[in-house]
Simulated scan of single mutants.
Amino acid sequence: MSTKPMNTEEIKKELIARMPTKVARKRAKAMTPGAQGGEIPEIQANVRTIPGIITQRGCTYAGCKGVVLGPSRDIVNLTHGPIGCGFYSWLTRRNQTDAGPDGDNFIPYSFSTDMTEHDIVFGGMKKLAAAIQEAYDNFHPKAISVFSTCPVGLIGDDIHAVARQMQEKLGITVFANSCEGYKGVSQSAGHHIANNQIMK
């Protein structure tokens, strides 16, 4: 291996060479070597995120759950989807808080329905209702917010119907956010969805 430092263009070529052809074509457009000779490179930015690929930009779900509603300490925020999505948006990295005067602080917990292939084939609405019930039984929150991930949107689980049903049963506010990761260009679509649901 050479000890000679590589320039940024060489580094880009080496990284792209390790990727599958289709991925490499897309990623090559987004990888911009530093300024050469005073030129400021233009960075590709306003394109849809690719579901399943975690980037610095995140996805609609990350914006809805991770940015807007996730930091709310007195709401149980329940991810309806695979455990990877729930863990990715778990707030271990920021927005830590002490319990307020009411003693509620659910931020240290990661609530998820942990959807598996079985749930994706046969539907996950019963599992979602059971998860809402379990969260209520264990924590007695004043509100529960549900977040859908990509598989939920693809199979058509009606999270809003489950939320209405459980709100009636439990007598607390239960509301859902249709924030599948593929719904927008970046996290900002999730910000809009969460804010609109809060206002409703």
Rank of each mutant, 00 (worst) to 15 (best):
M1E: 02
S2Y: 04
S2G: 04
T3L: 14
T3F: 09
T3D: 14
K4M: 09
M6G: 01
N7H: 02
N7L: 00
T8R: 04
E9I: 03
I11R: 12
E14A: 13
M19Y: 09
P20T: 15
T21R: 13
K22W: 00
K22M: 12
V23H: 05
R25L: 02
R27G: 07
R27T: 11
A28G: 05
K29L: 15
T32S: 07
P33M: 04
G34E: 07
A35G: 12
E39S: 15
I40G: 13
I40Y: 01
P41F: 05
E42R: 10
Q44A: 11
A45R: 03
A45M: 10
V47Q: 14
V47C: 02
V47S: 02
R48F: 14
R48P: 03
T49M: 02
I50H: 13
G52L: 10
I53L: 15
I54R: 12
T55W: 01
G58M: 11
A62N: 11
A62H: 08
G63K: 04
K65H: 07
G66E: 07
V67M: 00
P71I: 03
V76H: 03
V76A: 08
L78W: 10
L78C: 12
G81P: 04
G81L: 01
P82F: 08
P82E: 10
I83C: 08
I83N: 08
I83P: 05
Y88W: 06
L91H: 15
R93C: 00
Q96H: 15
T97F: 06
D98R: 03
G100W: 12
G100S: 14
D102L: 02
D104I: 02
D104P: 03
N105I: 05
S110V: 04
M115P: 00
M115Y: 15
E117A: 06
E117W: 09
I120L: 07
I120A: 06
I120K: 02
K126T: 12
A131N: 13
I132T: 05
I132W: 09
E134H: 09
E134M: 07
E134F: 07
E134Y: 11
A135F: 05
A135C: 15
A135M: 10
Y136N: 08
D137A: 01
F139N: 09
H140E: 09
P141M: 05
A143P: 05
S145K: 04
F147T: 14
C150W: 11
C150H: 01
G153I: 08
I159L: 06
A161F: 06
A163K: 02
R164A: 03
R164E: 12
M166R: 10
Q167I: 13
E168C: 04
E168T: 13
L170D: 01
I172Y: 12
V174F: 06
V174M: 04
A176V: 04
A176K: 14
S178A: 02
E180T: 01
Y182W: 09
K183E: 05
G184P: 14
V185E: 09
S186K: 12
S186N: 15
S188V: 13
G190T: 02
H191F: 15
H191E: 15
Q197F: 04
Q197V: 08
I198R: 03
M199H: 10
K200R: 05
K200V: 09
